[in-house]
Design a protein around this nucleic acid. Structure first.
Length: 303
RNA sequence: AGGUCCGGUUUGUUGC
């Protein structure tokens, strides 16, 4: 089964689910890895029913099988189902706990997530960081800081999260001092700091200088720069960057610049951009809808 | 020895 499994996994990683299934069906014998790989393939592809079918046919699901199924339901937002599975599982490991925790935290079930955290037999950096992020995203900054203070160890991801926490509490100096004190930084650290400058800085120049000094940049960095421009009223610079400087754009770039136009009363320019967008983007549609409504242009809003 | 478990962090819109 070993080499067949390799083939199955290769197809699955390539998103070729049909071929993966054909290998699966052709196999003279299957082991636990085979079943789990097929299950993971369907789960990755979002084929929930087929995944469930594989799981139900498994001779002996192990902890990896349960976790795969659990993660599938958690990620697709079927929390009751995920929670039910979690309770029914014959064993749970750290990953099972964290998957459920992340699902509830993500959806803003703060109290329940906190209870889960307390019930966890072992916690690690990841579970604490999930809770930290959850509190930060829901504006519970003091609680987030408390979670951080209780953590015995931290790593770069935790510190990256702390950058965001401090930025959300409006403290640019603190954000900067965390950034400076980090033993190592990755692109996410740099992007988080850039975003803090955009939200809290008083001068666009600080954002663009920081941007220039970055060791590398990606689309998120560029989009954060656009947001910094917009935040400070420089919608034309944002548009200029989008048109002439950015190596790529995405729907975040478009909606950021369009939002700049809307904020500063340039509804026609927002409109023009909206019509130039190559694909339909829900966020941009929402933006135009809200802009038309606020301008009393109900006919266009309805359109 | 080596194969299966997609658990955490950064950017935009509307709503909450």
């Amino acid at each position: 089964a070993f080499s067949w499994n390799l083939m199955l996994c290769a197809y699955s990683r390539n998103h070729d689910i049909e071929l993966a299934r054909r290998v699966f069906d052709a196999m003279p014998e299957r082991d636990a890895v085979t079943w789990n790989a097929m299950l993971a393939a369907y789960s990755r592809a979002g084929h929930i029913d087929q995944a469930q079918e594989i799981f139900d046919s498994m001779p002996q699901p192990n902890i990896a099988s349960w976790n795969t199924l659990l993660s599938m339901y958690a990620l697709s937002g079927r929390l009751e189902r995920a929670h039910h599975l979690f309770n029914c599982m014959p064993q749970r490991n750290l990953m099972s706990w964290t998957t459920v925790l992340a699902a509830f935290a993500e959806r803003g079930h703060l109290d329940y997530a906190e209870t889960l955290l307390q019930k966890m037999p072992e916690k690690d950096l990841i579970s604490s960081t999930i809770i930290l992020t959850m509190f930060a995203k829901h504006g519970q900054i003091e609680k987030a800081k408390h979670v951080f203070a209780e953590m015995p160890h931290v790593d770069m991801v935790t510190l990256n999260t702390l950058l965001t926490v401090n930025a959300q509490s409006g403290d640019l100096e603190k954000t900067r001092s965390v950034f400076m004190s980090m033993p190592e930084r990755d692109l996410i650290s740099w992007n988080a700091m850039l975003s803090a400058y955009g939200q809290l800085g008083n001068h666009v120049g600080d954002s663009s200088k920081f941007f220039r000094d970055m060791p590398e940049r990606d689309l998120v960095s560029w989009n954060s720069l656009l947001a910094a421009y917009v935040q400070n009223g420089h919608f034309d610079d944002a548009y200029e960057a989008l048109q002439n400087l950015m190596p790529q754009h995405d729907c975040v770039s478009w909606s950021t610049v369009m939002h700049g136009f809307v904020l500063y009363g340039q509804l026609e320019r927002a409109e023009n951009m909206f019509h130039e967008i190559p694909v339909q983007v829900l966020a941009c549609q929402n933006l135009m809808l809200s802009a038309y409504s606020q301008a009393g242009r109900l006919y266009e809003a309805k359109e």
